[in-house]
Design a protein around this nucleic acid. Structure first.
Lengths: 224, 224
DNA sequence: ACCTGAACACCGTTCAAGT
DNA sequence: ACCTGAACACCGTTCAAGT
C-alpha cells in the first residue's frame, strides 16, 4: 500500500494491527494485510514474529504496558481501581481487547499486575483459590464490559458497526409486543449505551460488591 | 471422510460442528472440514446455510434449546437459577460456548429466556438500564466461567489441551520466587480447577451477591 | 430439492535465495 | 540482519450445471 519509508519493527507492527482491529475487526488483521500496510511482502513479518500467534500475543501483551497498579487505600477500593484501570487500557483497543485475557500470566507486565493483585487479596484473607478466581474475574469483567458494551459491536469494525446495530434494532422493533413486552421496553439500552461512564461504573461496582459480600462471609466464618 | 449414508440436515451439521469445536477448537470448524465429515463437497453446505456466519449463528442458537427457565422462588434464587442453567448448557460445548453470547436476542429461545429474565428483574424494581446490564452480565458470567475455567483451555481442542496446560505450568514454575511469590503460591489453581462444582458455585455466587448488594442500594434509595 | 465441478480471491507458512 | 520469490496446503464463496 504505502511505500517503504520506514523500517519494520515489532512495536510498529503491533500498533498498526491494533488500529486495524478497531477499524475493521480482528478478521481484518492478517499477515498479508499488515504487510501490505507497510509496503512489504507478507514473509517479511516472519522475521519479526515467529508466526501469527506471536503477533496476536504481542497485541495482547501491549495492554499491560499502561496499567497503573494502585498501592494505597482500602482493599476494596484497590480492587475497584485495578479493575477500572484494566477497563481503561482495554478501551483503547476494544476490537483486540479479548487478546489480553490469554496473556496476563504470560508477559512480565501482566505477571507484575497479577502478583500485586494476588498479594493484596491474600493479605486480606482470601484463600489461594478465591484469590485466583477473583483476580481472573476482575480481568474478565473488564474485558466483558468493553467487549459487550451495547453499541460497541466489536466483532465488526467501526466501519460497518452502524448498519449492524441498525439491523439489530430493527429486528427487535419488529418483535410482537404481547410476547416480548420487557425486551421491547429495554430495547434502547440493549442497542446503545446512553451513558458510558455510568455503564462502566455499574459493571465494576457489581463485581466489587460481589467480592465484598464474599469477603464479609469469609470474615464471619473465620470469627465463628 | 465417511461415505454418504445419511442426508444432510441443519441440526446434524450443527451437532457435528459443536463436536469438532470441543475436540479440536473453533479453528477446526471450517466449511470444508465439516463437508468432509459428511462425505460431501463443501458447496453442499450452502444449501443448508447461507454462509458460514449462519452456521455459527445456528451453533450459538442451539444452546438456548435446553435452558429451563425457573418460575418459582425469590428473585435472587431465580437469578441464580438462570445463571446456573446457562452454565449447564454452555458446559455441554465449551469450545463453542462463546457463540451463544451474540445470539440471545437473535433467536426465539434466547428471546424467551431474556423476556422471562427481564420481567423478573423489572418486577423487582430494577430500572430498564439495570435490567439490561444485569441480564447481560448473567449470560456473560456463565460464558466466562465456562470459557476461562482453569484447565479448560477452550481455544485449543481437547486433543492438544494437556500439552498446552503443561507448558503453561512449566512457564509459571520457572518464575523467580522473590518476584512472584503469590503467583507461584496460586499456581495450582491457575492451571487446574480442583473442584469444578465449587468453582461454578463460587462464580455464580459472586455475581448474584453483587446484584443483591445493588438491589439493597436501590431499595434503600427508593425508601429515602 | 439437493448436490457437484470448476474457479476465484483470499489465508498462514516453508524454504531457499537475495542484499 | 533483514527482506523477497515461488510454492504449498489451506480458507470461504460464486455460479452454472447436474440429478
Amino acid at each position: 500500500m504505502s511505500p517503504r519509508n520506514t523500517e519494520l519493527s515489532r512495536p510498529d507492527l503491533v500498533e498498526r494491527a491494533l488500529e486495524i482491529a478497531d477499524a475493521e475487526g480482528m478478521t481484518a488483521v492478517t499477515v498479508r494485510r499488515l504487510a501490505k500496510e507497510f509496503g512489504v511482502t507478507p514473509m517479511a513479518l516472519y522475521w519479526h514474529f515467529a508466526n501469527k500467534d506471536e503477533l496476536l500475543a504481542a497485541m495482547g501483551d501491549s495492554f499491560y504496558d499502561s496499567v497503573a497498579l494502585p498501592a494505597d487505600g482500602a482493599w476494596d477500593e484497590r480492587l475497584r481501581a485495578v479493575t477500572a484501570a484494566l477497563v481503561t487500557t482495554l478501551r483503547r483497543h476494544p476490537g483486540a481487547a479479548h487478546l489480553a485475557l490469554a496473556r496476563v500470566l504470560s508477559c512480565d507486565e501482566g505477571l507484575d499486575l497479577s502478583e500485586a493483585t494476588f498479594a493484596m487479596l491474600r493479605a486480606e484473607g482470601f484463600s489461594v483459590i478465591e484469590t485466583a478466581d477473583i483476580a481472573r474475574t476482575a480481568l474478565q469483567t473488564a474485558a466483558s464490559l468493553v467487549t459487550q458494551e451495547a453499541g460497541a459491536e466489536v466483532e465488526h469494525g467501526s466501519d460497518k458497526r452502524d448498519e449492524v446495530i441498525e439491523a439489530k434494532r430493527k429486528a427487535l422493533a419488529a418483535l410482537p409486543v404481547e410476547r416480548y413486552p420487557n425486551v421491547l421496553e429495554c430495547m434502547e439500552c440493549l442497542t446503545d449505551t446512553a451513558d458510558e461512564d455510568e455503564y462502566y461504573r455499574f459493571g465494576v461496582d457489581l463485581f466489587v460488591d460481589g467480592v465484598r459480600a464474599l469477603h464479609d462471609r469469609v470474615r464471619a466464618e473465620s470469627r465463628a
